[in-house]
Computed example of a mutant assay.
Amino acid sequence: MTPQHPMAFVLLFALVAALLAGLAWSTSLRARRQRAASEERLAQLERRLAEQRAAASRAEASRAAAEAELRASEERCAAALRGSQDGMWDWDIGSGCVELSPRWKSMLGFEAHELADDLAGWRSRVHPDDRPAFERSLAQATAAHAAPDDARFEHEMRMLHKDGSVRWVLSRGVALRRAGAPPYRMVGQDTDVTPIRRVLDVLQAVADGTAGAVGEAFFPAMVRHFARALGLDCVFVAECADQPATRVRTLAYWAEGSLRDNFEFALAGTPCEAVVQGGSACFHRSGLARMFPREVGWEAYLGMPIVASDGRTLGHLAFFHRTPLGDEMLVDSVYRIFLARAAAELERIQALARRPTGASPAGAPAA
């Protein structure tokens, strides 16, 4: 072997070592890069996972809020139905079964188990005189070839309460049908409109009774027809006897079934004081004599001011009753038109009384 051979071996070894070192460095670099890329992908996956978890949490919170709102809505709806005057019904036309809601039955004074859920039980509560028209309306709405508008049922009728009284009910429903087929079902609701009917009856009765009355003749007609229409024990209309008002005198006074002599009285200690001096309506449904000892024997009171065109209180209309009164007495539409008429008549009478001749209306009440 030549002397140069060891040197060549050394050089060869160094070259191999360098190559191996370079390969190791390159491998390490690739490994670092791969590790960095893996870490970046892992970080991305973790971010995505965190985002998905946050989205899932938001979705769960939204779902919980939606469920809570749904429960609240259902509770509000149930409360509204419980407090409503409407009674729901559902008629399966094929079987004849009629599902009457507990509210429908209670509207007529029945417990849920006391009235059968069938067509006979439903129709039996309709007043006999109103039953034929009710049957015709139902037949029209459920006719096989009824037009869409005719498939809607709306009928006002009298229904029989468990206690024997009569209630006015507005019944509305719609017939359900499949394309080209006769109706198979009708659903609807009934509303007790008795207070509304009573208001209309009172308005009609008082309007008819006072239609031909003018001047001071209007006031006796008004109190008489209000007393009769509302079934009241005492009704009077009065004008202020002084200003500022401390006393009033009646223009017409109805008590215990007939017109009585007019009288004058002091407002102090009476429920009329707040009406005349305050210029606003006052209602005591019961316990009147406990609040106003002067009114012994009377249980309920409703007073309403008679207001002139210029805003002055001219007097008032007062109702007294020996037993409690219900809130239906507060329907002011019953009184508004007649109070305006009373104000006009009273202003006219007072204007005539102020004429220079000093003439006063015939039949004017005594002080």
Results as ranks from 00 to 15, higher is better:
Thr2Asp: 14
Gln4His: 11
Gln4Ser: 15
His5Thr: 15
Leu11Glu: 11
Leu12Asp: 03
Val16Pro: 05
Ala17Asp: 00
Leu20Thr: 05
Leu23Phe: 12
Trp25Arg: 14
Ser26Ala: 13
Arg32Leu: 14
Arg32Pro: 01
Arg35Gly: 01
Glu40Gln: 15
Arg41Gly: 03
Gln44Arg: 15
Arg53Asp: 12
Ser62Gln: 14
Ser62Glu: 14
Ala65Asn: 09
Ala65Ile: 02
Glu67Asn: 07
Ala68Asp: 11
Ser73Trp: 02
Glu74Gly: 05
Glu74Leu: 11
Glu75Lys: 10
Cys77Asp: 11
Ala79Tyr: 06
Leu81Met: 09
Ser84Met: 03
Asp90Arg: 07
Trp91Thr: 13
Asp92Lys: 09
Glu99His: 12
Glu99Ser: 06
Leu100Ser: 03
Lys105Cys: 07
Ser106Tyr: 07
Gly109Ser: 08
Leu115Gly: 09
Ala116Glu: 15
Ala116Lys: 12
Asp118Pro: 01
Leu119Met: 02
Ala120Lys: 11
Val126Trp: 01
Ser137Val: 04
Thr142Asn: 06
Ala144Glu: 14
Ala146Glu: 10
Asp149Phe: 00
Met157Asp: 12
Met159Trp: 08
Lys162Ala: 14
Asp163Ala: 10
Arg172Ala: 10
Val174Ser: 09
Arg178Gln: 10
Val187Met: 03
Thr191Asn: 10
Asp192Lys: 13
Val193Ala: 07
Val193Asp: 02
Val199Thr: 13
Val199Gly: 04
Leu200His: 04
Val202Thr: 15
Leu203Arg: 13
Leu203His: 03
Leu203Met: 11
Ala213Gly: 03
Ala217Asp: 15
Arg224Ile: 00
Gly231Trp: 05
Leu232Cys: 13
Cys234Asp: 11
Val237Pro: 01
Ala238Thr: 00
Ala238Leu: 03
Ala238Trp: 05
Cys240Thr: 15
Cys240Tyr: 06
Asp242Pro: 05
Ala245Gly: 09
Val248Ala: 14
Thr250Met: 05
Tyr253Asp: 10
Trp254Val: 05
Trp254Phe: 15
Phe265Val: 09
Ala266Ile: 09
Ala268Val: 13
Pro271Leu: 09
Val276Tyr: 08
His284Val: 07
His284Ser: 11
Ala289Ile: 00
Glu295Ser: 15
Val296Ala: 15
Gly297Lys: 01
Gly297Pro: 09
Gly297Asp: 13
Trp298Ala: 01
Ala300Arg: 02
Ala300His: 10
Leu302Pro: 02
Pro305Tyr: 02
Asp310Thr: 08
Thr313Trp: 03
Phe320Glu: 10
Leu325Gly: 06
Asp332Phe: 12
Ser333Met: 00
Tyr335Leu: 03
Phe338Asp: 06
Arg341Leu: 08
Ala351Thr: 14
Ala353Asn: 12
Ala359Leu: 11
Ser360Ile: 12
Ala362Met: 07
